[in-house]
Computed example of a mutant assay.
Amino acid sequence: MFRRRADREFHDAQLAGQAMLQMHANWPAPDLTAPAAEPAAPAHGGGIEEVPDFPPPDLRVPSRHEVEGLMMRWEQPLVVDGEVRECPQCGAYRDWIVFSMRDDTIWLRCRAGHNTAEPRLDPAWYNRNSGPVDHFHPTLDDGLRHLGH
């Protein structure tokens, strides 16, 4: 009983869809051979009006390839491949600065200022875990100061 009603509803929906397709098939095609209307000439004189750059140069940010690298703070312990990452020099295991460099390497800096490469991380990991870029700094020291190191 329910199967017949479902089959009938499905058949009615198919007929309605075919009618709609037939209706669209009977519409006239647009006239693509007619030339497009000529754009109106500017009122202030002949020639092409130059559009200023958008956004203005003072509002543009550098691209990723124009900066030496990106940095973010990582306050909790850093777990890589199931192991807590420690600084090889001082044994610190939290409060890192993570650098993603232009050459696609990841570097870690502990609170004591020791730098070490982390080959098990890549820029994709950095992009997944970092937020949007909120500041650009002219020097490394300015960036570290901004992040509290």
Rank of each mutant, 00 (worst) to 15 (best):
V98K: 14
R109D: 00
A43Y: 14
V51T: 06
R102L: 13
E75D: 07
R73F: 11
V67N: 02
C87Y: 01
D81G: 03
I48Q: 07
S63P: 01
E86F: 13
M72R: 03
A92D: 01
L59W: 11
I106T: 08
E49D: 07
I48T: 11
V79P: 03
M101Q: 12
V84T: 14
E75K: 06
E83D: 05
A92P: 09
Y93T: 10
P88E: 02
P52S: 12
A40R: 09
D81H: 15
P52K: 11
R60L: 14
P77L: 00
P42S: 10
D58C: 06
T105E: 14
I97L: 15
E49I: 13
A92F: 14
D53R: 13
A92Y: 13
R85E: 05
D53I: 15
L70F: 15
R109S: 13
H65E: 05
A40Y: 00
E83F: 04
R94Q: 14
A43I: 08
D53S: 06
G91F: 06
I48N: 02
R64I: 15
Q89R: 09
E49L: 11
P88Q: 12
A41H: 10
M71G: 08
G46E: 06
R111W: 11
G82Q: 03
Y93P: 02
E49N: 04
E50D: 11
I97P: 09
V84E: 12
M72E: 00
G91Q: 08
P57W: 01
Y93V: 01
W96C: 07
M72Y: 00
P77V: 05
L78I: 07
R111H: 09
W96V: 07
